[in-house]
Amino acid sequence: MSDIQEAMRSRAKELLESGEVNAVIGWEAGRFENQTTPLITSQAAKTQRLVFNEYCVNNLGKYPRDLTAKGKVAIFARGCESRAIIRLLSDEVIKRENVYIIGIGCPGMRDRTTGELLKKCAECRHGDPVIYDEMLGEPQAKPATQERFAEIQKIEALPRAEREAYFTNAFSKCIRCYACRNVCPCCTCRQCFVDQRREGWLGKQNNIAENRFYGLTRVMHVGDRCIECGECERVCPMDLPLMSLNRKVIYDINNLFGEYETALSLDEPPSALTTYKVDDVEEFM
């Protein structure tokens, strides 16, 4: 990984010095041991702070949204970043000419404290970038060590009352900090429904009913566009099982409307819930 880190630094420096890009998005060492934090810089000298190791847990894929207004940005992209960028591109949030994608193969990232493979990385099926302008190092072709829908099937098999208790317990912990929304590359509405105070979708109270309203609505908003990067679950300070909700929608779309995985290339058909077939499953007669 250290040779990739060196390549990252020199490539970022070249790009900034030549004026080809306005800013570079990567990771730098954090304040604590084995911690990294996103680095966004437009100064060539600061590229020496870039790091790449197995603790680069942040998905940088949403940052181009806030940065491309000022011009082209370069971003280091693993599988999850590249899919997030495809998400932003197909949602027409950013333009392809404004982002320069430097691909890196990903071996899976580890938790800072326990040293174990992150849950999102164990479930990840696309560790290598699916879109890039240039590639640093070799693709890793890391296999997923966890079945994609194992968690969903486990919860589905529970009796209804237990499922209700499980999710009521989860939503009772939610503090509605909206970290899951802020980090999500699918959540790119200019104004989110939770901020529409005058519409009154949600109050400022924190109770289970409104937490559930927020949680389920978010799933319906992003479900069919979810790139399964698992960032929502990773950033959740209360450790809610958010991917078990997101994946449930994907699981159903899979079963109802055919095999489905989004944001793998730029020329994809529209997402499953924004299209229809005349002979879709009918159970409402």
């Binding site: 209700e164 009521t168 069919d224 449930k248 819930l273 924004t274």
Partner: peptide, 20 residues
């Protein structure tokens, strides 16, 4: 047709998280 797709998924989601 759009409603049918959305409601198929939404109904399953509601039942999954515990609604009758």
């Amino acid at each position: 047709y759009f409603a049918r797709r959305r409601m198929l998924v939404f109904k399953r989601l509601l039942e999954y998280q515990g609604l009758e």
